[in-house]
Design a protein around this nucleic acid. Structure first.
Length: 203
DNA sequence: TCGAAGATTGTCT
DNA sequence: GACAATCTTCGAG
């Protein structure tokens, strides 16, 4: 159960995104270890991707996207939420994998305390901002390497192809139709409840 | 310096 | 299903 090496991230972003499913994200804090299995991710693929923050070019905000692969890109959105990405490809090629949902593994009681709005365990980490809240990931982690504590990604059991689905990305307005969202089909921990309700009215 | 938009979520109707 | 919360970032003036 070693951390994923940097070479894991130095590949085509779509390959990395698919392979991240099933890996484990671990945050060691003074209050204890928080960890979960990644069950939903999205790819954001460079300046030509209008939904990618790098579409704005190199700025102080997007700098980590242009930095070394295997590092975290943590951004603040809607005045209250943090979201975490893993930077991919290579320096100067700004693309990343957004972690959208986890299956909680370690530190579930601590997650419950951090996420009082969650009514049951499936709501602890089924959304990009929810999982950051539950794991205590904030701007402090922006730009950190993902190969060592406090924040790292470990190899897990590979999710077989027949358990993986690909869909359009969620919650964006630009390039929204691009099929760059991967998820573990049968996992009850994936996000997008409201989206599914919209997509299947009357059920 | 100002205004608008945003890779979301929780609450209310 | 609609909308408010809340603030950083960026581009325009």
């Amino acid at each position: 159960m070693k951390p994923l090496p940097r070479s894991f991230y130095v590949r085509d972003t779509l390959e990395v995104t698919r392979d991240v499913l099933g890996t484990l994200i671990v945050h060691d804090t003074t209050e204890g270890r928080l960890a979960g299995r990644i069950v939903e991710v999205e790819a954001y693929v460079g300046e030509e991707d209008a939904a990618c923050h790098a579409a704005a070019g190199y700025t102080s905000r997007t700098a980590p996207l242009y930095g070394p692969p295997g590092h975290a890109y943590v951004y603040f959105i809607y005045g209250m939420h943090w979201c975490v990405n893993a930077v991919t490809r290579d320096e100067g090629l700004p693309s990343a994998v957004l972690v959208r949902a986890l299956e909680p593994l370690d530190g579930i009681e601590l997650m419950r305390r951090r996420r009082p709005a969650a009514r049951w365990i499936e709501e602890l980490t089924n959304g990009p901002a929810r999982l950051c809240r539950a794991l205590g990931i904030t701007g402090e982690h922006n730009g950190l390497a993902l190969q060592r504590p406090p924040l790292l990604v470990r190899r897990g059991d590979r999710v077989p192809d027949d358990a993986v689905a690909v869909t359009a990305r969620i919650g964006i307005t630009k390039a929204a139709e691009w099929p760059l969202r991967w998820l573990v089909t049968d996992s009850p921990f994936v996000s997008g409840r409201r989206v599914r309700e919209k997509a299947r009215p009357g059920r």
